[in-house]
Nucleic acid binder design. Structure first.
Lengths: 179, 179
DNA sequence: GGTCACGTTTACGTAAGCGTAAAAGATAGT
DNA sequence: ACTATCTTTTACGCTTACGTAAACGTGACC
């Protein structure tokens, strides 16, 4: 499961001139983010290429600098993909829809604009509700699976103890032969 | 999302001679199984090719006949794949491992055999426990995601009612212009 | 200023998981 | 026997989600 080059994680922690006048606080380089998330650098660049991640700020030399927000967004992507099984294209659509509604109304009390935002909001709400439904279905299914697995594990343990006793018994009788 | 050919699902329910002397009860043809599971016929044949499904019994003419057990196995495959995100190769390994331990010990009380079965059992138990752990991690993560989604949905609804009031207010004042 | 680990872009490669068409045979109904 | 609807196998194609190499620049350190 080792990806990329061996990359024995080494020094390199610079404060070289940042281009985007970023306040530089908890910014991470691509290798660190990769190690943090278990992804490869290739994958991070790929996600950026697909515009799942917005272009990170860059160090003067061109090195990517990921903000905590970038990392958070990445985590969100990963759970949409890993937990709900969405494709990257679907994930992109979802997070784009999410971004849209983050501004709490710029308050342009124009009637037509408000109506447009209303129907737009309704779409987003419907989508979110749909995701919730999907998630709930998955949750119930997984709970069922969990029960099945637990039962199976229990049965296996029982079988094991039985076998163990059988084995000990055989050993004892074998030992008694030499007693 | 429509797969295969349109296949307007038609008659065809025969009792033509079954080859494998199957008692014929709830046997289904491939198209019916496909409709039942949401998979395509191609996918069913593909799974069979990967030996995820064991070769179904065939009608004299060569048509596949799936037993309820086959369908059950298929469902199990689908939840391992869909819920836990295993690849088909991993699924195959898992169900193979599962099959092995279904026989409740043929009772060959040979000491060496018993020991082999014990370590074998231990492996299966470890794997099952591992799956349970994975599932539990997923469950907690999904619960978290559910909470986030619910919060978001709540916020969106609140935003909607606010906007709706705003809209109504605008309508009212506009209407009052003509009163 | 050399070195070394880390980063950059560009581009071809690939494995999984099917889709899709082609040509043909099977079943049931008329 | 004819037809409509199912099924069969064979085989090439395709998309997603990255892997992997090549060639080259960068940042920090000695």
């Amino acid at each position: 499961m080792v990806k990329d080059k061996p990359q024995p994680l080494a020094p390199l922690r610079m404060v070289g001139t940042v281009e985007s006048a970023a306040p530089d606080g908890e910014y991470l380089q691509i290798g660190e983010v990769a190690a943090l998330t278990g992804l490869t650098q290739r994958t991070l660049r790929y996600y950026e290429e697909l515009q799942l991640l917005d272009p990170p700020t860059r160090l003067a030399g061109g090195f990517r600098l990921y903000s905590p927000a970038d990392v958070a967004r990445l985590r969100h992507i990963l759970r949409l993909k890993g937990l709900l099984g969405f494709s990257l294209a679907e994930v992109k659509a979802i997070i784009n829809a999410e971004e849209v509604q983050l501004r709490p109304t710029p308050n342009p009390t124009d009637a037509a604009t408000v109506r447009r935002r209303l129907t737009q909001l309704d779409h987003v709400i419907a989508n979110t509700a749909g995701q919730l439904d999907l998630l709930d279905r998955k949750l119930t299914d997984m709970t069922q699976l969990r029960a099945d697995l637990a039962t199976r594990l229990h049965d296996l343990s029982a079988q094991r103890t039985t076998l163990q006793a059988e084995h000990d018994g055989a050993q004892v009788s074998a030992a008694s032969e030499y007693a």
